[in-house]
């Protein structure tokens, strides 16, 4: 990995607070880190540690008070509203804990909502097969299980082949077995498509399958490690 690829995403002095006056609460207190291209980075931390806020700022749907974020050389702070939308459209994919699927579009159509955003999307049928949803492609979301719905939301996020896949507690609402299936899927996607993945989780076990682990507590980075003993998703347990 070249030096540039190692600093594919770089965060410098990032600060964010909510409220004002006496109720002002500093959520991020000056974060510095980099994420390499194609890395699977896990943001760990307890509730209120600022990991979701960090993810939202990285995804351009929230703004920092101070600091700089640079993704592949593009500085988010310099982008206006329109450029940010364009940036998200071109480079980012989002997966949330709640699947947020469109209820009256079927599986394939929901994935197409992601494909529409890209000039060169992935082959949807092949992706459906990878996601294990090919047989279910004509079903509506309410005919699917939670795991299947999360697969659809991952499919929607990666179909446009984004540079970065941002996952906010993607297994938070799922049972153990389904969570492992989803993690395996994310691992497969990372390996097959080479996207940089930043996943927010409070599940300590997930860090074992990550290339890069960043632990947050009270708005500060407690640990920023490269995982040299990486396990596969199938191997981890909790």
């Amino acid at each position: 990995m070249s030096n540039e690829e190692k600093k594919f995403l770089s965060v410098n002095g990032l600060k964010k607070s909510f409220g004002s006056g006496e109720t002002r609460q500093e959520v991020l207190k000056g974060l510095d880190f980099t994420v390499g291209k194609g890395e699977f980075c896990v943001l760990l931390g307890p509730s209120g540690s600022g990991k979701s806020t960090l993810l939202n700022i990285l995804g351009g749907i929230d703004s920092a008070d101070e600091g700089e974020i640079s993704i592949n050389g593009d500085k988010l702070a310099e982008m206006d509203e329109k450029s940010l939308t364009r940036y998200r459209r071109k480079h980012l994919g989002y997966v949330f804990q709640m699947y947020n699927l469109i209820p009256n579009l079927n599986v394939k159509e929901n994935i197409e909502t992601g494909a529409y955003l890209s000039d060169k999307p992935l082959d949807i049928d092949e992706l459906l097969k990878i996601l294990g949803l090919y047989e279910h492609r004509h079903k509506l979301p309410n005919q699917l299980s939670g795991g299947q719905q999360q697969r659809v939301s991952i499919g929607r996020a990666i179909v446009k082949n984004p540079d970065i896949l941002l996952c906010d507690e993607p297994t938070g609402a799922l049972d153990y077995k389904t969570s492992k299936e989803i993690l395996q899927l994310i691992e497969d996607v990372n390996q097959k498509y080479g996207n940089t993945i930043i996943m927010v989780t409070h599940n300590e076990a997930i860090k074992q399958m990550a290339d890069h682990i960043i632990k947050l507590r009270d708005g500060n980075i407690r640990h920023d490690n490269i995982n040299k003993d990486k396990l596969t998703a199938a191997e981890i347990e909790w």
Partner: peptide
């Protein structure tokens, strides 16, 4: 990390229109 045998498709028509 290198990407493996990725197949690309065509950009679909806006699915929201069908909606």
């Amino acid at each position: 990390m290198k990407k493996k045998n990725i197949s690309f498709g065509n950009r679909p028509k806006n699915p929201l229109r069908r909606r």
